[in-house]
Amino acid sequence: MAGKSELPPELLDGIEDLEWVGRHVARGLGPGIHPSTLVGFGEDFERHRPYQQGDDLRHLDWRLLARTDRLHVRRYREAANLRTMFVLDGSPSMGFAGIDVRPKKGEGPLTKLRFAALLVAVLGHLAREAGDVPGLVVSGGPDGSPLYFQSARPGKEAWHALLHTLHGLEAGEPSPLAPILDRVGGLPRGRVIILSDFLEEDGGEALWREAGHLCARGDDVTAIRILTPDELGRGSEADGLFADPEYPDRTVPGRPRGDVGYAERLARYYGHLARELEERGVEWWEATTTDPLLPLLRGWIRGESRR
């Protein structure tokens, strides 16, 4: 996973026809495919404005003049590119691959973090194809600081550095996502993709507030929740003592699969979190580490399926 050429060819073929268009208007760095906050004389008609002295007569709406006998010029919305900031949760829980999951020969287990890194690589590729500029911030550093930070920079070199980081990414220390989003809020506006299991100690309250701030200032925020089948209670039949990787001393006897109460509490937690985020304008996507990547991406980007 060091560059475009190293992404699986079948994956590249599968996403070739996809265009990942932002939902909001953007103040771009250059020409792109997204609606721009800059209104001018592009291709998409935006509105009429009364003619002012100095306006180019080429944009005068002659038909409207004929009907109303008033001078108006046509204004168009310019297409722009976006800064796409991927916010990756690097806390220990993201290093989970499943109960009793053993690495296959020659490769490590597919943890949530690896799955998220793969998503970042593919979405980042789509973003670059659209002329966007990807950046990456990974939580899990000491004292809530980022484990890794790369601002959205154009160019191949920056993209390769990002892929290189994704390739060797390991989970860090327990850390909430809210401070990371707060830091992203200090960056120029753009698209923010949060990839996490969203297992926040406070139930996600700080998270949805910070995400709401981002949306309020005009960022296009998407939260992608990643879980394993075991966490969803659809995996291993194993029972025994379980511990949160972020709190290994807190052991709980249980059996996730078939535990109705567990499934209900899990659904309630994520339902509440998704609702709070969506109310603030955050788009909520869900993925499981066993999901096939292509259908998942198509469903998301074409808006056919979010969960």
């Binding site: 989970f96 379980f242 511990a243 949160d244 807190r250 709980v252 249980g254 567990y262 509490r265 937690y269």
Partner: peptide, 12 residues
């Protein structure tokens, strides 16, 4: 017996 499960807090 201890196994890791990030969602252990939701067990019944």
């Amino acid at each position: 017996d201890r196994r890791l499960l990030p969602t252990a807090r939701f067990l019944s």
